[in-house]
Design a protein around this nucleic acid. Structure first.
Lengths: 211, 211
DNA sequence: ATATAATTGATAAAATATTGACAAACCGCC
DNA sequence: GGCGGTTTGTCAATATTTTATCAATTATAT
């Protein structure tokens, strides 16, 4: 049933969207759906959906379609949202605080256990039930709590140093909101970039070039 | 020199990254760069860079490379960051406030002129020098100020109604932080989605599937 | 002034991603 | 229990994107 082969990046990037869609259908109490109906709702082709899902195994049934509850659970497992990966936030400025309070980390497989900032004045302030710690305590905290993921919401100029430190401290994944370019220097590190200003400039281009 | 043809989405999505990189080189006082050197720094192939840039015209010179100042300016024009598109923010919760204060709208071609929220209690509070207005004032504000873009930082359940209202009010672009799926219902509308939880789940997948 | 090295822009080739088509399997009705 | 209609999983075809190659052009050193 499973085909633990290489999965292409475009497919991986679509999985979370399937997951969210199924989440919605599930909440509405819908039991099954065909690739055709799903394609109509999501604005994709049915062929693509079937091809994507088949990378991971045959979740559907001919003449019936896909069972939503089952498919939702399966994709969740594939994405690892059932995990509880210990996670720290670095940078408690406007953006960092918003990410901490806004994101449902636990529903996506993460467990936010620490918040750090280099600004002494913030130390002690609470975010989502966690105290902001001064960045100087990062080493000891990581030694004691072994976070596997760090969310980076700091200015670009501090990013290089922090990333090197985090890698040494055995952090395996970075959710990177900075502009700093984490290249292939760290082969064992997973990086997911969120470049908000790139997204904004893309919108700008689209605006200026729509018919 | 210009080739005002169709530009593929992958190319468009890379433009902002080129722009940011050139911004950095420029600040460091570097005058010229070859596609080869740039490729090394950005982690792309030189061939791709040359091909991408050539979609818009021959900015380089054989034996020399690209003049950074000129290329920076040209890509800026292509992206439209020299514009000042009047923009409103809808939703002044954690995320909305962070986006308003954190993003350099004016450096990316936008001008934030209004902030709205449905929470009466927030009304009057200031963000980035702008008062939070109650959403009921949206119609009049748009009539008087004609914003062309809206940043959407509201719960998914309110999104459909707001989008329809915005389109009627002649808004042409949406920077969408909600999970609401703006499909092809509005052909004249440009939409750029920022799905943070998709990004987070992608990281989760990568973590669970790295060698 | 000329030769050499560097580098682009363009074209061709290769790799990757998406879509179409259809046999096989299954549902559900009669 | 069989039959018509539905829908998947898979394979082949098409479309798109990326990479490699190279002639033409220019910079730079001597």
């Amino acid at each position: 049933m499973k085909k633990a082969n290489y999965i292409s990046l475009p497919v991986i990037k679509r999985l979370p969207r399937y997951y969210r869609f199924l989440e919605g259908l599930r909440k509405n109490g819908i039991e099954k759906i065909s690739s055709n109906e799903l394609s109509r709702r999501m604005g994709l082709t049915a062929s693509q959906i079937r091809q994507d899902l088949n990378c991971f195994g045959g979740f559907g049934q001919q003449g019936y379609g896909y069972n939503i509850e089952q498919l939702y659970t399966e994709i969740g497992k594939i994405l690892g949202v059932d995990k509880n990966v210990p996670t720290i936030l670095i940078g408690a400025g406007n953006l960092g605080r918003a990410i901490a309070t806004h994101m449902e980390f636990s529903e996506r497989g993460f467990d936010l256990i620490g918040v750090f900032d280099k600004n002494e004045a913030l130390a002690g302030q609470m975010i989502k039930g966690l105290p902001i710690r001064h960045i100087s305590g990062l080493y000891n905290f990581c030694r004691d709590n072994s976070p596997a993921v760090a969310v980076l919401c700091i200015p670009e100029e501090n990013a290089k140093e922090i990333v090197e430190q985090l890698v040494k401290l055995n952090v395996k994944g970075i959710w990177n909101f900075t502009h700093y370019n984490i290249l292939g220097d760290f082969p064992s590190l997973s990086v997911e970039n969120v470049h908000l200003s790139d997204s904004l400039m893309t919108l700008s281009y689209q605006l200026n070039n729509s018919k």
